[in-house]
Computed example of a mutant assay.
Amino acid sequence: MSPSGPRTLAAPPRSSWRGRRLHPDHARGLRLTLAAAAAFLVAVPFTLLAVLVLGDWSPLRRLDTTVTDALVGYAADHPAWVRLMTLWTDVFAPMPLRVGALVLVLWLVRRGARQLAVWVAVTMTVGGLLSPLLKLLVGRPRPDLPDPVAEAPGLAFPSGHALNAALAAGVLLVVFLPYARPAGRRAVWTAALLLALVTGFSRVALGVHWTSDVLAGWLLGVAVVAATAAALTVWRADPPGRPAPPTGRGPAAGTGS
């Protein structure tokens, strides 16, 4: 071909499937792979725990009984502690958390972060549907104590409070953590951990759930957050309130992060 003739650009080499899965900037790259792997790895201990509960494994039953008896015994002698735990468990119950998630979805939509808004809605909905379904499948009764300090209807495994608190904590981290300053990041982490841990603990402290119910709720919540984040690749969504990058073909066009 003559030097003055038209030139054709060689097509870039196609990367392997493994290379695309582990590429940090590929749309279905490293972070999606890690999120999918995390969802799988968290779902495994949840499944194992469910099998142990269904099989009435005696070491797990003894552990649940010992912890519940100790915490309920303390609560019976400290009415102020019962009121505090009851207040916390009511404020951060599944329904108030869902209302808070709806407010967050509307705020994200108004800010133009529609992908994050969809992810929040999907995550809370999937978790909300899984909890009653799994309760029916496992059919585990709540603790039947001679002197209860609180009561709750329905079945026990997994804890709906713990599950929804873990979902809400995950939403806080995914939505706000990437765009917070260092002090703000510590505040977000603290709020998320307190929300998940204290809500789950309150259910055992009040004697309405076994410890394994709460642990199962936490595990399932983390698995749902990781799975939906992987499916919707929310880390590639634009930050709330930040304009989307340009999509033109010129050299100044952005690519999104």
Rank of each mutant, 00 (worst) to 15 (best):
R62T: 12
T65A: 15
T66F: 05
V67A: 12
V67F: 08
D69A: 14
L71G: 04
L71Q: 09
V72G: 03
Y74R: 13
A75I: 08
A76W: 04
D77W: 02
A80V: 15
A80Y: 08
W81L: 14
V82H: 08
R83H: 15
L84N: 06
M85E: 14
M85R: 03
M85A: 15
L87P: 00
L87Q: 10
W88V: 10
W88Q: 07
D90V: 07
V91C: 09
F92S: 12
P94R: 13
P96D: 07
P96Y: 05
R98I: 01
R98L: 15
V99N: 07
V99D: 08
G100E: 04
L102W: 11
L102A: 15
L102E: 05
L104T: 05
V105H: 04
L106F: 12
L106M: 12
L106Q: 06
W107S: 09
W107N: 01
W107T: 11
L108W: 11
V109D: 03
G112N: 12
G112T: 09
A113K: 01
R114I: 11
Q115C: 01
L116Q: 10
L116F: 00
A117N: 11
A117T: 08
V118H: 06
V118M: 07
W119M: 07
W119S: 01
V120Y: 00
V122E: 03
V122Q: 00
V122M: 02
V122Y: 01
M124S: 15
T125V: 00
G128A: 07
G128C: 02
L129M: 15
L129S: 04
L130G: 08
P132L: 06
L134C: 05
L134A: 12
L136R: 14
V138P: 00
G139E: 09
R140K: 12
P141N: 11
P141V: 10
P141Y: 07
R142K: 07
R142P: 01
P143Y: 11
D144L: 10
P146I: 06
V149Q: 02
A150F: 09
A152K: 07
G154E: 06
A156V: 06
A156I: 03
S159P: 04
G160K: 01
H161W: 01
H161R: 04
A162H: 02
L163E: 08
L163G: 04
N164D: 14
N164T: 13
A165T: 08
A166G: 02
A166Q: 00
L172C: 09
L172Y: 00
L172N: 06
V174F: 00
V175L: 01
F176K: 02
